[in-house]
């Protein structure tokens, strides 16, 4: 394991500890630490174990999977601006969630909305896999992704227009902004298997991503199975993005920012980029979530909004630099 991975793991652990100590409920440091080891009163233990830690786990998990998905997609498409949103998978996951809310299915069970999001991501994945099997190259995939995103966006707008009552409209807005507030261990338990499967698929594609540094044709001549790499990355990132949207709603830019920061530390190797990017994205989102919890504002800032406020300018900066480099 590289020093970078060890360092990021330590930072993650520190942030986990920190996130157990902060929140709206007034809980002293002593009470928090006591609750952590199973001491102290029941209320403190509930706040720590049922509210703060699952929330931290959700923030880190969502961040890590978005970072991994972003790094993998960037390697596949040889484009530092790629992320799950680019392929339209996040948009379709959000669409699935929105449809479930719109048709009032959300009331049946807490699991309906997450399942609908994974289903939506699966639908987009299916389109992408079919295109891949027909030999679509990276540019075609990007264009299909843009089409899927726009289409899902239009359908989401339609759902919002037709929303039968203001209650569900505010639900939609919450969903689209992204948040990990009030996540339970049950939410994590639903997402974790998907995270594991998606991560495994992406890691199997890692050597192929390195060969793709030299473009698709040269990579094929080097002995890399590019079609297999494409299917693994598209399938894996779709599952990762779907599960993340299901857990936290739409949170953008983390999947672009983290790999961009990590890249110089791994000599720009798209294979070695994967794990540190996941860890750093988890760290970023967990830190952002700690931040929105301690910011002294009337209504808690949505995590997705905080992520976009930080990530948006970085995205534009990378895009501008790329434009200059190719000019």
């Amino acid at each position: 394991m590289s020093r970078l991975v060890v360092f990021l793991t330590l930072v993650s652990l520190c942030l986990f500890a920190l996130s157990g100590l902060v929140g709206t409920a007034p809980l002293s440091l002593e009470a928090s630490l006591g609750a952590l080891v199973g001491q102290g009163d029941a209320a403190a233990r509930t706040i720590l174990w049922e509210i703060r830690l699952p929330r931290a786990a959700a923030a880190f998990g969502v961040g890590a999977t978005l970072g991994l998905a972003g790094a993998a997609l960037q390697g596949l498409l040889q484009n530092p601006l790629a992320e799950p949103g680019v392929l339209g998978v996040s948009a379709f996951a959000a669409l699935g969630a929105v449809v479930a809310i719109f048709f009032g299915l959300a009331g049946i069970s807490g699991l309906i909305v997450p399942l609908a999001a994974i289903l939506g991501a699966g639908l987009a994945t299916l389109v992408l896999v079919v295109a891949t099997l027909r030999g679509a190259n990276s540019v075609t995939l990007l264009l299909i992704g843009i089409g899927l995103s726009s289409f899902a966006g239009a359908l989401i707008s339609l759902a919002m227009n037709l929303a039968p009552n203001p209650y569900s409209l505010s639900d939609l807005v919450n969903w689209m902004m992204g948040s990990v507030a009030n996540r339970s261990w049950a939410d994590i338990a639903l997402a974790a298997p998907a995270w594991a499967v998606g991560t495994a698929l992406v890691m199997m594609a890692a050597p192929g991503l390195r060969a793709l540094s030299l473009g698709e044709e040269t990579a094929a001549s080097l002995g890399a199975d590019i079609r297999r790499t494409r299917i693994l990355v598209i399938g894996g990132t779709s599952i990762l993005a779907g599960a993340s949207v299901a857990t936290a709603g739409a949170i953008g830019f983390v999947g672009i920012v983290a790999p961009h920061i990590v890249r110089p530390f791994v000599r720009h190797d798209p294979q070695k980029l994967l794990v540190p990017s996941a860890l750093l994205a988890g760290v970023i989102l967990l830190a952002a979530d700690v931040l929105v919890r301690i910011l002294p504002v009337q209504q808690e800032l949505k995590l997705g909004v905080a992520a976009a406020l930080l990530g948006g300018p970085v995205f534009i900066w990378i895009a501008a630099r790329l434009g200059r480099a190719s000019a």
Partner: peptide, 12 residues
């Protein structure tokens, strides 16, 4: 094979 077009996507 050494192709005519030799892209290198990342600053390896």
């Amino acid at each position: 094979w050494l192709p005519q077009a030799r892209p290198v996507a990342w600053n390896l």
